[in-house]
Design a binder for these strands. Structure first.
Length: 443
DNA sequence: GCATGATCATGC
DNA sequence: GCATGATCATGC
């Protein structure tokens, strides 16, 4: 047998090796030729991962799968809810409950925690139609142990279950008895399924397993999910984030806004729905939320742009407001504006056609060229020096720079903040000139 | 038609 | 209550 590519006695090494599965299915990660079709238990992805990916045989006792590293391997399914968030497909089964021995255990050193204290969680995207080995792992694997605070609850739950068995009520156990740790049904459930013996009662009890409830898994997920809305498509993962994004928009390119609205069942609310094109864009990306985690993580600034028939943006591009009292003490490289324009941008561009119909024109990534950032820097310094000179009413106009300017941005003209000298002026922000954007978009 | 001023809906 | 992204409005 070939040398293992990880150290089975080291949890970190196991985790690092497991990352090779990210974004792939088991069948993509290892060659299962001649294996998959002969499987008896096609439902057990965890066993297959252990055998064919880790090339490891778990111990035949109550120790964790990787006994020396103390790591228990778990695969668990996730799905998406209507908001595009990943949620647990179901509870995570930890280990079967042995009613006969449970009553003699103490929490200290109990067999459940002995096995599951440290778990390597592999989240795969649940698709019913696919065999388990073709389902993709959508996040990086997570090496996970219970936080102290949770462990208290788990301990109480464990004792609740133990007490019930001790009271001769194993057959009455239900998941609702407990909070995080559940005693879930395990087994076929059919009429022929043999009942389990319990120590304090002659009544047979159905097989149950210790499990973590879906809601609990969801909290683990949301903490871990630097989730990949775009990561669920294999070609995208292999080709990178940029291709992934283009693929997302491909079906909509060239369509009118009305057509896209109909497809996504999301329509403009009223004339003043100024966030509409952005919201629509988010829907095209598959979420109803405000942020795209992958963009967040990569620091990508999403902006929507509407072009006139002639290719001129309808509007300048705004950035967050600055405070007069802050900018005087700021250095360029600490400023919000600097930090924004340093980022990679992702433009979603709509364009009016000759019939006045707005269509999704194209999407593109964009970085602001260095010279232009220097020009923006100049505008920023000018702004700062004007505020210092107590001339905050007179800030760089769009006619003063080919790249950027300063302009009001507030709720209305009464929406004011103080200058260092105490004058109240309308809130303002930096803008990129639409003419400048027009030039850049042509490149 | 352009530059500049003013404002809106949304979500946290 | 307020920042944000974006759009609307107006005067020259």
């Amino acid at each position: 047998m070939a040398q293992l590519q990880y150290d089975p006695t080291s949890a970190d090494s196991i985790l690092e090796y497991a990352k090779k599965l990210s974004g792939k299915s088991l069948s993509q990660a290892v060659d299962l030729t001649g294996v998959a079709e002969n499987l008896k238990h096609k439902g057990d992805l965890g066993t297959m991962v252990e055998r064919y990916f880790f090339e490891h045989t778990p111990p035949n006792n109550h120790d964790p799968d990787f006994a020396e590293a103390g790591v228990e391997l778990k695969t668990t399914g996730v799905k998406k809810n209507s908001d595009g968030e990943y949620k647990a497909k179901e509870r995570l089964v930890l280990t079967l409950i042995n009613y006969m021995t449970l009553v003699d255990e103490d929490w200290a050193g109990n067999s459940l925690m002995n096995k599951c204290r440290l778990m390597l969680l592999l989240f795969y995207y649940y698709e019913q139609a696919l065999p388990v080995y073709d389902r993709k792992f959508v996040f990086d694997p997570l090496l996970w142990s219970f936080p102290e605070a949770d462990l208290k609850i788990i301990e109480q739950d464990w004792k609740t279950i133990q007490n019930k068995v001790n009271d001769g009520l194993a057959h009455e156990l239900s998941e609702g008895d407990t909070f995080y740790l559940g005693a879930c049904r395990k087994g076929s459930g059919g009429p022929k399924e043999p009942l389990k013996q319990q120590p304090r009662s002659p009544i047979g009890a159905k097989a149950r397993a210790f499990s973590l409830k879906p809601s609990y898994i969801n909290t683990i997920l949301s903490a871990h999910a630097t989730e990949a809305l775009l990561l669920d498509n294999e070609q995208k993962v292999e080709a990178g984030l940029d291709v992934a994004t283009f693929e997302k928009f491909k079906p909509y390119i060239g369509l009118t806004v009305d057509e896209i609205s109909d497809m996504l069942d999301f329509h403009k609310q009223g004339k003043n729905d100024k966030g509409f094109y952005r919201s629509l864009t988010m829907r095209m990306l598959g979420t109803k939320k405000k942020v795209i985690p992958e963009f967040e993580k990569a620091g990508v600034e999403l902006k929507t742009i509407r072009l006139t028939t002639k290719g001129m943006p309808k509007e300048d591009m705004s950035f967050p407001i600055f405070r007069y009292t802050d900018i005087v003490d700021e250095e360029w490289e600490d400023s919000t504006f600097f930090n924004k324009i340093e980022q990679k941008f992702f433009f979603v561009i709509f364009k009016y056609d000759d019939n006045g119909e707005l269509r999704l024109h194209k999407v593109m990534y964009w970085n602001m060229p260095y010279e232009d950032r220097e020009e923006a820097h100049r505008v920023w310094e000018k702004t700062k020096s004007q505020v210092i000179a107590d001339k905050a009413e007179f800030l760089p106009k769009s006619s003063e720079s080919p790249v950027a300017h300063v302009r009001p941005k507030g709720k209305n003209k009464e929406d004011k903040i103080p200058t260092p000298s105490g004058k109240m002026l309308t809130k303002k922000c930096f803008w990129l000139n639409k003419k400048y954007l027009a030039q850049q978009l042509k490149k």
